[in-house]
Design a protein around this nucleic acid. Structure first.
Lengths: 1352, 341
DNA sequence: GGATTTTCTACCGACAATATCATTAAATAGCCA
DNA sequence: GTTCTATTTAATGATATAAGTAATAGAAAATCG
């Protein structure tokens, strides 16, 4: 590999600094040779490694990464490992393994907090404080390597803050900072980029003559080459680059980063614009407004003058920085932008009917005005404001036209997506205002009645409060000397959250707070309200999220602000460059707000809202019985008890709740997390993918830095490409809303009645009358329980309805749109859509509402699969395919009726297992059946192929279990096997035998065993359900048969034993593997890593076990089981203290959960791998693909192809002995770990250990502990690994209680398994050994190739 | 003929006490009985019926019987090891041993109404019931809830309190006693001390020596002058100190449900003055109560400083509040089971 | 080292106790040389 | 101006909260002497 030319920064820096700091014009005339002498080639790695603190415990051990060898294309076929060395010696907060480094963990936390604070201070122009934070960061030794990045952040902010600071002074400052304040810190190319940018943007009156040499000087100082300087697009704007290339001509085009090169190429020198006006005026504007201006400029050219606005919104805003759409913008958007005119032109050029034509010509192709259909439809204005793109797309006759349409739509949607992710709060605010003004025109009463009008009132009341708070914070923060003692509690709190609060536009914060609280209504088990803890954190998170996307948008528009060309081709270029830019920005941001800050911010905002939000209420005076009207706070903070524990709650007033129930809730859906209108950003990196402006991580880590550390290392090693591939296929599947189904759901919904799983709308709950107070306590108690049950039902119904409302509203908003679901993974690798509420993983209704955007002709086999699909949805999925087809064909009449009269007809579809999806299928089938040639029918319906007990399929393949494999359809068969029925049969047989022997229970139960009784238990058995749990499941199934609950439970207990027995018998080898996994997990989680800090061994002989179970999936994804003891702390906020966990705390593992979790998690990691492999392959073959874990979806015509892929990939996955590989990985990873075990006392080895202990005891003057032994063994290991030969030889001679085991081969004979005589065993440290793998059976997974019922 | 009292030697052989603790030293018991001076209430012990809940090893039971020879003395004890012990020691004595669970409400309805094994006399509430006494030992650390439930039964006038104002001699952990007996403004003042104040007249009779004593107010201790006995007089010796209180129900007249809601919520923020804390009672509470409470001094007080009478006053205002919240819905429901096959 | 007591209770997506008092650690003021 | 101590403040830890052991009960892990 070619290494870029490094220059030893250590040696050059001082000289360079001296050069820069030299006074006068000399600086601007650097002689070429003087700079070149500064370049000293030296191996930077030597310097880096010697300066790093290289604590081995602080960094992931190289042993930690057994990854698959990528050299062989068929990864699964290769058993050899490539032990990659994650020799990342830099300090990085995530790069810590939990097993070690307790101290650096706390430092990590400190650094994280300092970072977030630094960022906040820089944003708020608190330069002094920022500098002192820098000083603290500088003192963290592990952080030195990265410190320059923080300094760059500071310098950049400084430059923006003082745009007219002469470059000489700037240079002096830089020199001074790096030479005195932060010794040993060297600038990097970004530092230079900042200086260049500063120089370029100085007021033009500055001696521009000298500009060129200055810049040349900086360019020559480059550490990694000029290219590297220029790649800092977050610093150097396009116009900067343009000047450098075209005006100063100090660089050539070829040196530019590839993503922007084409833009600059197309910018002719003459048309380059450097907008200095913007520079002068625009500093205190928020990103949004800047962006808005950019947008406008992009569209109308720079001549469009911003007219001063009298809009009250603007007046109200703090320093005029409200990022709202100016009123005059509406006028402006009415005029077509050129780019959009082109889109319209394109669209009108397609084959459209008259109506479509009219729609398009009326339609305003402006992203700001037409984000989504969120406006009420009652006014019937729908036809004007929205276009059903799906219909148009479908009506286009040729593929070319479709392509052209999609391409035009995509350009439009790119803009809409941007607006969607960035302008949602403004949109909400606009809506409120609009409604308010309308209501106002009608009178005060209608203001009260209209929710949005009320929200607008709250907004206006809250805004000044926030502003006041912010100005408090600002004045407090800008005080010269902060006398901490003189501060009251409120102010010292402000000092903490103040820097963050000042970051975001106050108006936005209002909107976010209000929306979050409305969204959280009836969550957390609270009857009419929410948990305070959740509320404050949600608001805090939402604020942070807003800030993040604002940041990205801001830097993006900063960089591209002067790009001003109107051709659509150019626009595409810019869009492309921007997305590359965003990606790298998101990638770079590592800063997260601490949880405590989120909570504090949230509480401040919420308490303001509580203070001002009022609703008018009426009650009855208990004395006079007269109706009383009044005003009450809409939100109230209080507490409720649960099992004696207090729970902070935020109650919402009944009046408001009633209003919310009748409301369309679309507004409060977190807009950043809606489905996307364009393809998600592809996953290329562990934290870059999905939404365009919202950061999401590849893995849903449970606040576990350990998981992140492994993921990051794998990502940086480039090991998880296949994961990205699969995930990107999932994300790139376009969907649309099934209008037919939507209309039916909508009708049902508006009806307000209960329908299928939609509960009916209920106003009040009906409670049984209370018994007299002096009734027996037991009677009082049953009544209380009744009330509780009813209330629970009521509130769960309501939240259910609310959830349905969300789904429906999102669906409505996306009617006729092309939509995408960005995905990420849970910690085992299973994929989930990022957007909540409405997605294809949702309930039956959500799934029924979704169809593929692309249609495919049924072709020869499509109709067959469509029919089978319907049969499956009705629950007939365990009969052979022909019978399923026959089922559908025998119901053609019902299908027709269901499709044509879904609600008024026989409603046959409602009898299906999955009625809404069945209805969707009926609609298609009905259309197909009317066609002369069904093969020509264009189908959009996803067809599902489900694995029969997917977990058991994997187990069977792992164990090579022929019997089990047969049961789960791994073996070709002319008829699908029904596991559940089979288990039921086995249980039945057992019962019959028992009954013959005179077993009473068996006699009663033997004829009551159905498939249904055992189904859940068989399923959950894979997840390691316990005897007790299974008993409950079975009791639930049996309860209709027996009247007495007690009796039913007794029978269930009995039955459970037999069911368990039957399952064990049937899937014997699966259970052996399950046991093996469990035992391995137990041993690992009870093992000790030697280089662990002795502190965790403080309890003498009882250490805290720190090692969690870690493995790598066949796709290379490292999986860390995050189960640890949680440590939570109380954090003070404005409202109350909240109880939150500290993510950087180092906690011992929860061995139990590690143990019970491994079997299911391992299997899930395999099925996830299978899914991703299949997805990638299907993607390659041009299939539209979606998945719900073990259910795979595609077009009817492609089902056969997909099935082939599924089987191939499954075989590919299991051709390797995965269990063996897992064991090898474990053995390698936990190589030098020890466990506490018992050794037979009557052995030589034991005697030797006793002698060592005696010696040691003498030396120490006390009894030895295992901790001491660990200490010495650790010492020995350190010596052995020492580079010094003498150390090494000392180490080799050293004998410890652990080293004695090195050469022992027959440990089994020496170790006492549990039990044994009391005196024969003694506690010693034994090397960790894993149990033997159960023998593999004879099943050859390759026979699967011909099993048609594998997935069906 | 008096019943022999089990000695510490026999008692110490017992292994299982389920976390309960018993005073075994007869001398201390004697002192306690002297102090209790029960004949003042039970002028005619021959008509007295005593219910002994969780009698444990029965030392106190036997000594009681020996002293007063009541008409009926029934011990309710279900825990097998202790039941066996009682059987072995008192099989032939007049003490009645019933293997029932004192925790279970049905035990009482069965005993009293169904089987009529133990039928106390109903007496009006103008005096302490002079023919019915309950003695109980609820010294288990985890059984504090039972005491609290019994207390609320006084408020409901159900359970054994349907027979009138029945006296109860109750052993409990010292910490529980401290909480119950706390008076306004004391550190341990909590909702249950208000409940105690509302429904009963309770005195500390005896307490084992130890650090826990420090938690009690010295003035109160002076007033009650409890018998302080050594921790060594308790078996099993390990564990926390215990105390004996005498609980006499009192007359009360207020809306218990609303009062319960008000006290429960106010005592959460027991150090927050009333003029602020009222918001936690419901939407707009602060505004309402600040306008209704005329006594400005009261508004400055914190819940912890309030007497029960003051709580009753606040409750009255609360019930008169036109916009008062629904007190029935004052609970959270934890995620119920969903998800199926 | 062995019995008693406590802790679970099928995996994942998922989402959470809190007020107050006592004690300890840290920081500041004061004090004096 | 420093160093040492007294005093105050911040941080941390402990404890109580409500009041049928949430619907349930028997095994496995953890604790304690």
């Amino acid at each position: 590999m070619l290494r870029p030319v490094y220059r030893s920064v250590v040696k050059t820096s001082v000289l360079q600094k001296r050069l820069l700091s030299s006074k006068g014009s000399k600086l601007y005339k650097p002689s070429p040779d003087s700079t070149s002498t500064l370049i000293i080639n030296d191996d930077p790695l030597v310097a880096a490694s010697s300066s790093s603190s290289s604590s081995p415990s602080g960094i992931i051990n190289s042993n930690d990464f057994p990854l698959f060898n990528k050299s062989n294309k068929n990864t699964t076929n290769n058993l050899s490992y490539q032990w990659k060395n994650a020799s990342n010696m830099e300090f990085d907060p995530f790069n810590k393994s939990h097993a070690s480094a307790i101290t650096s963990m706390t430092r990590t936390r400190d650094v994280m907090q300092l970072w977030s604070l630094l960022e906040a201070c820089l944003q708020s122009n608190l330069m002094k404080r920022a500098f002192s934070i820098l000083e603290s960061l500088y003192l963290t030794p592990e952080h030195k390597q990265r410190f320059i990045e923080d300094y760059n952040m500071y310098l950049d902010a400084f430059s923006k803050n003082e745009p007219n600071f002469p470059i000489i002074k700037m240079n002096e400052k830089l020199t001074n900072d790096l030479e005195t304040s932060f010794k040993d810190i060297n600038y990097n190319d970004k530092t230079l980029a900042i200086m260049i940018h500063h120089a370029l943007n100085l007021h033009p009156t500055a001696s521009s003559m000298l500009l060129s040499p200055t810049i040349s000087a900086y360019l020559k100082m480059s550490v990694n080459g000029i290219r590297d300087i220029l790649s800092n697009l977050d610093i150097l704007t396009i116009s900067d680059l343009s000047i450098l290339v075209n005006d100063l001509k100090v660089i050539s085009l070829s040196q530019l980063p590839t993503s922007v090169k084409p833009i600059l190429e197309s910018l002719a020198p003459s048309s380059t614009l450097v907008n200095n006006i913007e520079n002068e005026n625009g500093f205190n504007k928020t990103a949004a407004e800047k962006d808005l201006n950019i947008e406008k400029k992009l569209e109308f050219g720079r001549d469009s003058i911003r007219t001063p606005s009298l809009d009250p919104l603007r007046e109200a805003s703090l320093d005029g920085s409200m990022g709202v759409l100016p009123k005059d913008a509406e006028k402006l958007v009415a005029v077509d932008t050129i780019g959009m005119r082109v889109i319209r032109h394109t669209l009108l050029g397609l084959s459209l009917n008259a109506q479509q034509r009219e729609q398009i010509s009326k339609f305003k192709f402006d992203a700001n005005d037409n984000v989504l259909n969120m406006k009420p439809t009652e006014n019937g204005e729908e036809s004007n404001t929205s276009i059903n793109f799906f219909e148009i797309y479908n009506s286009l006759p040729t593929l070319e036209e479709k392509r052209a349409f999609e391409s035009a739509l995509n350009v439009f949607n790119q803009d809409r997506q941007k607006v969607l992710e960035n302008r949602a709060t403004e949109a909400a605010r606009e809506r409120w205002k609009h409604d308010f003004e309308e209501a106002k025109a009608r009178g005060d009463i209608s203001i009260e009645k209209n929710l949005n009008a009320k929200l607008w009132k709250w907004y206006n009341d809250m805004l000044p409060l926030i502003k006041e708070e912010i100005s408090h914070c600002k004045s407090l923060l800008s005080e010269k000397s902060v006398n901490k003692r003189a501060l009251n509690k409120v102010d010292s709190n402000r000092l903490g959250y103040g820097p963050y609060l000042t970051l975001i536009d106050p108006g936005k914060m209002c909107v976010i707070t209000i929306l979050e609280l409305l969204k959280l209504n009836s969550t957390g088990g609270v009857i009419e309200g929410m948990r305070t803890a959740r509320a404050v954190i949600s608001v805090g998170k939402a604020i942070e999220m807003e800030f993040r996307s604002e940041q990205i948008l801001k830097s993006e528009s900063q960089t591209f602000r002067d790009v001003n060309k109107k051709s659509p081709e150019f626009k595409k270029l810019v869009q492309n460059a921007k997305s590359v830019f965003r990606s790298s920005q998101i990638e770079q941001s590592k800063i997260l707000w601490p949880q405590t800050i989120r909570a504090k911010i949230g509480s401040v905002l919420i308490s303001m809202l509580i203070h001002i939000a009022k609703v008018s209420v009426q009650g009855i005076d208990p004395i006079t019985k007269a109706k009383v009207h009044g005003e009450a706070p809409a939100f109230a903070h209080g507490y409720q008890y649960h099992n004696g524990s207090k729970l902070g709650v935020l109650k919402i007033h009944k009046t408001l709740i009633r209003q919310l129930n009748g409301e369309r809730l679309i507004a409060s859906v977190q807009p950043q997390l809606l489905p996307m209108l364009v393809e998600p950003k592809p996953w290329v990196n562990w934290r870059s993918g999905g939404y365009h402006y919202t950061q999401s991580t590849l893995l849903r880590t449970k606040d576990s830095p350990e998981q992140v550390a492994y993921l990051k290392a794998a990502s940086e090693n480039g090991d998880i490409g296949p994961v990205y591939d699969g995930l990107n296929v999932l994300g790139n599947t376009p969907w649309t809303v099934n209008r037919n189904v939507f209309d039916v759901v909508s009708q049902v919904w508006n009806n307000g009645e209960g329908f299928l799983d939609i509960p009916c709308a209920q106003e009040e709950m009906v409670l049984p009358p209370a018994p007299p107070r002096n009734s027996d306590p037991s009677i009082l108690r049953t009544w209380k329980l009744q009330v509780k049950t009813i209330a629970n039902k009521f509130s769960s119904d309501r939240s259910n309805r609310c959830d349905t409302n969300y789904k429906l509203e999102i669906a409505r908003a996306f009617l006729g749109e092309k939509l995408y679901f960005p995905h990420n993974l849970d910690f085992r690798g299973r994929a989930y859509p990022l957007s909540p509420h409405f997605n294809h993983l949702g309930n039956d209704m959500s799934r029924g509402l979704l169809i593929f955007w692309h249609g495919k002709k049924l072709g020869s086999s499509g109709l067959k699969w469509l029919k089978i699909h319907l049969s499956n949805l009705f629950g007939f999925d365990k009969i052979c395919l022909e019978d399923r087809i026959a089922f559908t064909e025998s119901h053609l009449k019902d299908i027709k009726d269901s499709a044509e009269h879904p609600l008024t007809g026989e409603r046959w579809w409602t009898t299906a297992d999955k009625p809404w999806q069945a209805l969707a299928t009926c609609f298609e089938l009905n259309k197909v059946l009317k066609m002369d040639n069904p093969e020509e029918f264009v189908s959009h319906q996803p067809i599902h192929q489900d694995g029969t007990c997917n977990g058991l399929q994997h187990y069977a393949a792992l164990g090579g279990d022929v019997e089990g494999a047969t049961q789960v359809n791994l073996v070709p068969n002319d008829k699908p096997q029904d596991v559940y029925a089979h288990v039921a049969k086995l249980v039945q047989k057992r019962l019959e035998i028992a009954a013959e022997k005179g077993d009473e229970n068996a006699k009663i139960l033997k004829d009551k065993i159905t498939r249904k009784v055992v189904k859940q238990t068989v399923m959950t058995n894979v997840y390691g359900v316990t005897y007790v749990g299974a008993t409950f499941q079975i009791a639930k199934q049996l309860s209709p048969i027996f009247d007495d609950r007690k009796e039913s439970l007794d029978f269930s207990k009995y039955l459970t034993k037999h069911v368990f027995g039957a399952i064990r018998e049937l899937f014997h080898s699966a259970h052996l593997i399950q046991d093996w996994l469990g035992e391995s997990a137990k041993r690992i989680s009870k093992s000790i890593r030697l280089d662990v800090d002795e502190k965790s061994f403080k309890n003498g002989n009882k250490p805290d076990f720190m090692s969690s179970v870690i493995w790598t999936t066949p796709l290379g994804l490292p999986i860390v089981q995050p189960y640890r003891e949680e440590s939570k702390k109380q954090v003070e906020t404005n409202l109350q203290t909240v109880f939150i966990s500290d993510p950087f705390a180092v906690n011992p593992v929860n061995a139990r959960r590690q143990k019970t979790g491994l079997p299911p998690n391992f299997i899930h990691s395999l099925d996830a791998s299978h899914m991703l492999l299949s997805a990638a392959e299907c993607g390659k073959r041009g299939l539209d693909f979606a998945s719900v874990h073990d259910s795979y979806w595609t077009h009817a015509s492609d089902v056969d192809t997909m099935n082939v892929v599924l089987r191939d990939q499954f075989i590919k996955l299991h051709e390797v002995d995965l269990v063996m590989r897992l064991k090898e990985e474990f053995t390698q990873r936990y190589k030098s770990y020890v466990k506490i075990g018992k050794l037979k006392r009557a052995t030589d080895l034991a005697q030797k250990i006793i002698n060592i202990r005696k010696d040691l005891s003498k030396k120490l003057g006390r009894n030895t502990t295992l901790a001491d032994e660990i200490y010495f063994e650790k010492k020995r290991q350190e010596l052995l690994n020492s580079p010094l030969l003498e150390d090494k030889s000392i180490g080799e001679k050293m004998i410890t209680t652990v080293s004695l085991f090195q050469d022992v081969k027959d440990l089994d004979t020496l170790e006492l398994e549990n039990g044994g005589d009391e005196n024969s065993g003694m506690s010693v440290l034994l090397p960790l050994r894993l149990p033997e793998i159960p023998p593999k059976g004879n099943f050859d997974v390759r026979v699967l190739k011909d099993s048609q019922y594998f997935f069906s | 003929m008096s019943i022999p009292i089990p000695g510490i030697k026999d008692i110490s052989k017992l292994k299982f006490f389920y976390g309960f603790k018993y005073l075994w030293n007869p001398k201390v018991h004697d002192k306690i009985f002297d102090k209790l001076d029960l004949t003042k209430t039970y002028t005619n012990p021959k008509e007295l019926k005593v219910l002994d809940l969780y009698p444990g090893v029965g030392v106190q039971s036997a000594m009681f019987y020996n002293r007063y020879s009541p008409q009926q003395y029934s011990m309710i004890e279900r825990r097998s090891s202790l039941y066996k012990f009682l059987q072995a020691n008192f099989e032939d004595s007049p003490l009645q041993i019933l293997k029932r669970d004192p925790y279970d409400w049905s035990t009482y309805s069965n005993l009293i109404d169904k089987e009529r094994v133990f039928v106390p006399e109903v007496q009006p509430s103008d005096h302490i019931n002079d023919s019915f006494l309950t003695v109980a030992n609820v010294t288990g650390e985890g059984s504090e809830g039972l005491i609290m439930q019994w207390l609320s039964c006084i408020g409901n006038k159900n359970w054994l309190y349907r027979f009138g104002k029945m006296k109860m001699l109750l052993w409990m952990p010292s910490t529980t006693a401290r909480k119950l007996l706390a008076r306004p403004s004391m550190r341990s003042r909590s909702k249950c001390s208000v409940v105690r104040e509302a429904f009963t007249d309770t005195k500390l009779i005896a307490i084992s020596d130890g650090d826990e004593l420090k938690g009690f107010d010295s003035k109160c201790l002076e007033e009650w002058d409890p018998i302080v006995f050594s921790a060594a007089d308790i078996w099993p010796t390990k564990g926390k100190p215990i105390a004996l209180v005498e609980m006499n129900p009192t007359n009360f007249d207020f809306d218990v449900e609303n009062w319960d809601y008000v006290t429960r919520h106010l005592m959460i923020l027991k150090r927050t003055p009333l003029n602020i804390v009222m918001d936690s009672l419901g939407h707009g509470g602060q505004l309402y109560f600040n306008s209704r409470i005329t006594d400005k001094e009261l508004l400055k007080k914190c819940p912890i400083d309030l007497t029960n009478d003051e709580f009753i006053y606040i409750t009255k205002l609360f019930t008169e509040w036109p916009f008062k919240p629904d007190i029935l819905m004052d609970f959270v429901d934890m995620n119920q089971t969903e998800h199926s096959g």
